[in-house]
């Protein structure tokens, strides 16, 4: 599903003395089937942005188009339908688990949306496999599981709906490195196998670089930059000005260029490339 924001304004507590504008004239496009990362400093408007994607909030001005759905300040009755297509995994989704068993919890969404429950039950083994959980957790209480497992159950409860758009709000916060890389591989796998559109909100520049084909950089409720990750991370100063860092591999490339006086081209901005540049540097020294 294509997602388009057209001149979107959002103001919290609109028409009160406490109003606070979170989004200013926001316009961008997320192509169907893309993996888009949204990065930005705390308070840059990332979360406000993603709440528009499934109609939790609506623009005060402007328009959001998601596939065939349009959201504007006018009253809208298709929101429930939209939510069938756009799955959102919020921060710390494990806090939203509530059912007696994992099975009931995962099937809560399908039941609410009126899906064929028998069919969904048959698919459960597959869904669990997708999120890396054993089938025997189905009859256990979600509250007996470890934090990482609980998060997987919560994610299963979203992907069981087979959304066309999967929105992930800092899904790896609080996980250890191993848990984090497993979780990201899972999303990358889902993205490819289901041909869905993925929107990932993250603090980790490394993750944006590794998985996203498009990055939207938010600052003070506006799009600061949009483009391919490799292009964006060249703009070190501009990112730093808005409180963001570039991935360590880019910092290292910059440092090598300044210190050793050899150039690191764009294709070499990864571990192997940098290692090769350094090997060449040392070997050249040995010859001269």
């Amino acid at each position: 599903m294509d997602i388009t924001f057209k001149e979107v304004d959002y103001i919290y507590q609109y028409n009160t003395p406490f109003e606070h504008q979170a989004l200013h004239n926001l316009s961008f496009h997320i192509p169907s089937g893309s993996f888009t990362a949204i990065i930005g400093h705390t308070g840059s408007g990332k979360s406000t942005l993603i709440q528009h994607l499934n109609g939790l909030i609506k623009p005060i001005q402007g328009e959001v188009t998601i596939g065939e759905f349009t959201l504007s300040s006018e009253k809208n009755h298709q929101v429930k339908d939209l939510r069938k297509h756009v799955g959102v995994v919020f921060q710390y989704p494990e806090h939203q688990l509530f059912e007696e068993t994992v099975k009931k919890d995962i099937l809560f969404g399908p039941k609410n949306f009126g899906f064929d429950l028998d069919r969904k039950e048959d698919e459960l083994a597959d869904v669990l496999n997708n999120v890396g959980l054993p089938v025997d957790v189905l009859d256990r209480s979600p509250f007996e599981l470890s934090g990482g497992q609980m998060r997987r159950v919560a994610i299963a409860g979203v992907i069981v709906l087979e959304p066309s758009v999967l929105v992930l709000d800092e899904p790896t916060a609080g996980l250890d490195p191993l848990g984090r890389s497993q979780m990201l591989k899972l999303f990358s796998h889902l993205h490819q196998s289901r041909q869905q559109t993925t929107v990932l909100v993250t603090h980790h520049m490394e993750d944006a670089l590794a998985y996203a084909d498009q990055v939207i950089v938010m600052n003070q409720g506006k799009v600061e930059m949009i483009g391919e990750p490799k292009e964006l991370f060249k703009k070190k100063e501009r990112l730093r000005d808005i409180g963001l860092d570039i991935p360590e591999v880019f910092e290292c490339a910059n440092y090598i260029e300044n210190k050793l006086g050899v150039s690191v081209n764009e294709c070499q901005s990864n571990m192997e490339g940098i290692s090769q540049v350094l090997v060449d540097f040392v070997k050249a020294g040995a010859r001269s």
């Binding site: 490195p177 290292c252 571990m271 192997e272 290692s275 350094l278």
Partner: peptide, 20 residues
Amino acid sequence: IGLEPPFVTKLYHQLKSENI
């Protein structure tokens, strides 16, 4: 043991495999 080696450690590992 579930820890991720830092960037520099991975880079140095690569260099070592090239005898540096």
